Structures are given as C-alpha cells and as structure tokens.
Simulated assay, not measured.
Amino acid sequence: MLRTPTGETRLRILAWLKEPGPAADGVTADAVAERFSMPHPVAVTHLRLLQATGMLRTSRSEGRVHYHRDDMRVAEVARMFEKGW
C-alpha cells in the first residue's frame, strides 16, 4: 500500500500530518484535496485507507471529520517494513 506511486501520496499525507498545525488540529478531506491538488473523492480514499491500517484516527468537530496521525501505529508499520515484511 505504501510502495506504489499512490502510496507515495499517502506517505506525503502522513508527513504533512506531522507538522505542527495539522498535527494539533487534524485535517479534513477538503484540506488534503487542496494541499495535494487532488479531487476530494481521491483524498477521501487515501485517508480512509490510512485509517483502515490504523495509521490515522478521526475526530469530529462541527460535523466534519478530522484526521490525525497515530504516531505509535506509524512507527509500528515502519518497523515491519524495516524487517522486510
């Protein structure tokens, strides 16, 4: 999932979510679509895949879903890849 061309986009999303602003507040699918110049449905797909793997968690604010990194899970997945999994 992370070793494909679209996987690189997901890695960029994860890196962005580590920055102070997005890390503190989380981001919406609209923000991801705008930041990475992609259609909203594509942003939603990337975010849902990252959420399904546990690397993102969600919260709701004002009726909108905000996505946040789960740094513990990201580190766990990184260790799996380092081991050649």
Rank of each mutant, 00 (worst) to 15 (best):
R73Q: 13
V32L: 03
R79L: 13
I13A: 03
A75H: 07
S61K: 14
F81G: 00
E19F: 04
M80E: 11
P22W: 05
G84K: 10
R69N: 13
T58A: 05
A52H: 08
T4S: 14
R35D: 02
T6D: 08
L56G: 00
A24V: 03
H66E: 03
A33W: 04
R48L: 13
I13S: 01
E76R: 14
E82S: 06
A15N: 10
H68P: 01
V74K: 05
A24F: 09
P20L: 06
K18G: 13
A29F: 03
G26W: 03
M55Y: 01
L56Q: 02
G21A: 15
R73I: 13
R3A: 13
Y67V: 05
E76K: 14
V77N: 06
T53A: 12
S37M: 08
R12I: 01
V32F: 08
T9E: 06
H66V: 04
F81L: 15
A29I: 05
V65I: 15
A31Q: 14
G26D: 03
T45K: 11
E19P: 00
D25Q: 10
A52E: 12
A24G: 01
F81S: 00
L2W: 12
H46P: 02
R12A: 12
M72R: 15
G21T: 09
K83M: 14
L49D: 07
M72S: 11
V42W: 07
R35A: 10
L17C: 08
S61W: 14
E62V: 08
R3E: 10
G63A: 09
R64L: 13
H40D: 03
F81R: 10
H66D: 00
Q51N: 04
K83C: 05
H68Y: 09
M55K: 01
R3H: 05
A75V: 03
M80A: 15
T53L: 14
H46G: 05
M80P: 00
G7E: 01
D70C: 07
T45I: 13
A75P: 00
R48G: 02
